[in-house]
């Protein structure tokens, strides 16, 4: 069954007809020619397809395009503005945070969103309880390597570039 949806991708609006079965990942890659999000597992397990959907990181392989008509999408390609790389992209290059590079766009989008989540005070499974007794003060969470590893666990890297991915993100988190 065909449906028409509007997607705003990396600042440009697209009107596209898709089958109801089409995921955002397939709509981006196959219909709109944006191959920045990658198809790894296609089951929400590897994170290579991570995009920002209305400002939040999600697995685009599990989101049906028809259910997100009108959405604002940012891919790793859209993080660069006017040819200027995003600071996270520069950190990944500086720290050599990849080998084959297939998971990298998903890693970078996920990392950018993850820094915002921590800034907004979102806890993770390893965020310690505040010794003062109020864990829920809502203040920004300081990101050490443990926090980064936990928060990035939805992005797999089969080359195992993890140590450099963590150090790349740590550098930006410290700024």
């Amino acid at each position: 069954m065909d449906v028409e949806v509007t997607l705003r991708v990396d600042g440009t609006e697209h009107r596209v007809t898709v089958d109801t079965r089409t995921t955002l990942l397939d709509a981006l890659r196959e219909r709109l020619g944006n191959t920045s999000p990658k198809k790894g597992c296609d089951h929400g397990q590897c994170g290579a397809c991570t995009i920002l959907l209305d400002g939040r990181r999600v697995n685009s392989c599990l989101a049906l395009a028809v259910a997100h008509d009108g959405a604002e999408i940012v891919t790793a390609a859209g993080l660069a503005v006017d040819g200027e790389l995003h600071p996270m992209q520069r950190c990944f290059i500086r720290h050599d945070a990849f080998q084959c590079g297939y998971c990298t766009p998903g890693q970078i989008v996920s990392a950018v969103a993850m820094l915002r989540e921590a800034q907004a005070g979102w806890p993770s499974a390893v965020t310690p309880d505040n010794p003062a007794g109020d864990a829920a003060d809502g203040g920004p969470i300081r990101l050490d390597a443990d926090e980064i590893r936990e928060r990035m666990s939805g992005n797999l890297c089969r080359c195992a570039a993890y140590p450099n991915i963590v150090s790349a993100i740590e550098e930006l988190a410290r700024r």
Partner: peptide, 19 residues
């Protein structure tokens, strides 16, 4: 209900919890 928050955060990934 700290256990409620901890349970949610121990499940899935950041991307999945957003959806």
């Amino acid at each position: 209900y700290p256990m409620l928050s901890q349970a949610l955060l121990s499940g899935a990934s950041g991307q999945l919890r957003n959806l």
